[in-house]
């Protein structure tokens, strides 16, 4: 009998610590499937940020470096420069990448570091209990914006995929969503594209994934998918904001 569906080899046989309904698991799975399909599992090194993503090493049976909060793109820079023949990817949440680590991600992108970053945007700090992140939507209630995010005092949700796409060093910048099977398939194609950019030495690649945090949003898993569709996507449009096609970019 042929197996038609199985756990990717690049995922361990282990229950995750993610809350039921959270799409971190989906993101892990599509990254693992692409690692399998590209046959790169033996030559890949993962660097998670700090937050719900930190336990990457429990779920991917690969070499993993735990970076300080926000600094993963700098750690990945050092690692990739030291081992240009290896695949180095970073997995960060929105507090990690879009708040404390903005400097590191912008400059890694601007130098065109040949690394791939998967950026989980669920509009809150998940692990610490749902505080406001730079990606929190206007009006969204969090534990630190109990009256809703107000642009006059907290500013606007930050659009990282668009911002990074303005930098010359960036080979690929896209925003995808994980809220429906169709979107998960699109997301997987973006993950594959990001890794291919790295394999082909095209430069920096980043995939922003709109993700659910139903626990901290205080909604059911099913409602959370609707929040992504009806509230996040209108502000954070999906799409490819930059895609390099040639190697002659320098």
């Amino acid at each position: 009998m042929n197996a038609v569906f199985k756990r990717p080899d690049a995922l361990t046989d282990r229950e995750t610590h993610f809350c039921p309904g959270c799409t971190h698991g989906t993101a892990h799975r599509i990254i693992a499937e692409v690692i399998d399909e590209m046959g790169i599992v033996d030559d890949i090194i993962g660097i998670p940020g700090v937050g719900c993503c930190v336990f990457l090493y429990h779920y991917f049976p690969i070499d993993v470096l735990e970076a300080p909060h926000g600094r993963a793109p700098a750690c990945a820079t050092g690692m990739k420069r030291a081992q240009p023949d290896k695949i180095v990817f970073v997995y960060q949440g929105d507090g990690d990448l879009a708040a404390i680590g903005t400097s590191e991600v912008i400059h890694a992108a601007n130098r065109g570091e040949n690394i791939s970053i998967f950026f989980i945007n669920n509009s809150v700090y998940g692990m610490t209990g749902g505080q406001m992140a730079p990606t929190t939507l206007l009006g969204q209630q969090t534990t630190t914006t109990p009256y809703g995010r107000e642009f006059r005092t907290e500013g606007y949700p930050i659009k990282m995929a668009e911002m990074l796409a303005t930098l010359e060093g960036v080979a690929y910048s896209a925003r995808v969503s994980l809220h429906s099977p169709k979107h998960v398939n699109q997301a997987k194609r973006a993950v594959r594209k990001a890794f291919e950019m790295q394999v082909n030495q095209m430069g920096f690649s980043m995939v922003e994934m709109l993700s659910t945090c139903n626990t901290n949003w205080r909604v059911s898993p099913r409602e959370a998918l609707k929040v992504v569709e009806n509230e996040m996507i209108p502000y954070f449009p999906l799409g490819v904001f930059k895609e390099r096609t040639g190697k002659d970019f320098l």
């Binding site: 660097i47 470096l65 970076a67 300080p68 600094r71 700098a74 750690c75 990945a76 820079t77 050092g78 690692m79 990739k80 420069r81 030291a82 081992q83 400097s103 590191e104 912008i106 400059h107 130098r111």
Partner: peptide, 26 residues
């Protein structure tokens, strides 16, 4: 060798961490 003029000392030391974790003297 590799020389990177980093964007900050925070980035510098974390780049050191990445290269050192790769087994290199950094």
């Amino acid at each position: 060798g590799v020389f990177i003029p980093a964007e900050s000392e925070i980035a510098s030391i974390n780049m050191v961490m990445g290269a050192a974790a790769s087994g290199k003297r950094a």
